[in-house]
Design a protein around this nucleic acid. Sequence first.
DNA 1: CCACATTTGTAGCGAACACTACAGATCTCT
DNA 2: AGAGATCTGTAGTGTTCGCTACAAATGTGG
Lengths: 199, 199
Amino acid sequence: MGMGRPRAFDADAALDRAMDVFWRHGYEGTTIAQLTEAMNINPPSLYAAFGSKEGLLKAALDRYSEKRDAWMEKVLGASSAREVAERFLMEHADAQTDPANPPGCLLVQGGLACGTGSENVPFELAARRTHTEDQLRDRFVRAKAEHDLGENADPVTLARYLSAVTSGMCVMASSGADRTTLREIAAVSLKAFDEQAKA
Amino acid sequence: MGMGRPRAFDADAALDRAMDVFWRHGYEGTTIAQLTEAMNINPPSLYAAFGSKEGLLKAALDRYSEKRDAWMEKVLGASSAREVAERFLMEHADAQTDPANPPGCLLVQGGLACGTGSENVPFELAARRTHTEDQLRDRFVRAKAEHDLGENADPVTLARYLSAVTSGMCVMASSGADRTTLREIAAVSLKAFDEQAKA
DNA sequence: CCACATTTGTAGCGAACACTACAGATCTCT
DNA sequence: AGAGATCTGTAGTGTTCGCTACAAATGTGG
């Protein structure tokens, strides 16, 4: 008995293309048509190889996790906890703005949705988040004028930092983090503020 | 000439219901059917009052911003920058876990999508984020055993904090934050780590 | 060369989506 | 009371979604 016609595309290369699409548009914002076009295959090939749209996402996440684990090994291999933290944060900043990939991280962006016809919704949301950030910044500008903040403290950076932390808390809250957990994060964040504020 | 039949529902109350649905399922994950059921009206009433699904979201965001502005006024009214930061962070922790609302913040959750049939995708993503957090925690447990971290430093809290910051950076990166901005956030975050680590 | 197994492309399936036509109901104003 | 205006509920519209039936194409083993 024969072994059947061989697959005419490279599954790993196709997965990389799919990962990029999911990363850019989120799981729900991605359509099968976008995926098949990016992967250069037809729907039956996709379903034969990955089972379903969700199966394809999981395969893409597995591939993403492989790269991430290799990267984490480098981070965790630092000789001190302090350097682990520094590498983790800085490498994240670089990875999330790497022009070779869509912005952000697949594990967060995958849950976002920017489907066709509602691309301006994320824009609208971002604008309103920025508004809060601006309010904080203005307050810190005033504080600096009142010598309530150090000479080298930057109101823009402080406001951005607080905004980033609360956005991160959002992500964790949506994953089920409880109030105690979020308060602990807030308490630790405040220490960074104290250090930065007296600069 | 007459003024027409009066509206049979309270627009503000309906808006609150819509806000809850958007908050819980994200914009794209929300269907008109879910909205009309929650608002207790029929599609034509929704479209007559708000124009479109996106128009309804904007109206809900406006209503959300009103409440948020009132809340921010309280925060910004603190007498010192330090207390502004503390209130901002702590009130966020509480607001995002307020059982009266869905978890998180509408301005972030609104961009998420948990449509019917893919509720497990956010779950899958969260599990993989937790994996990274666990790797960090284990590394910090080791660091503590090696007296590389203070006696009172909590590996779980430190790992959670770093995870929250990087998730927040994701949200900002997806809104267009550049590398320099993210590195500044990372640098500030590191100061909190230092303070916490020597505890 | 001939069964057999698997992939590929075309074409289209049922379901769900955002949205609306239409007719009857309910108001205000004269 | 009657005319004009707006809302309400029913029942759809066309489109797009994830997914698949089917037949032709392409491989292997006997």
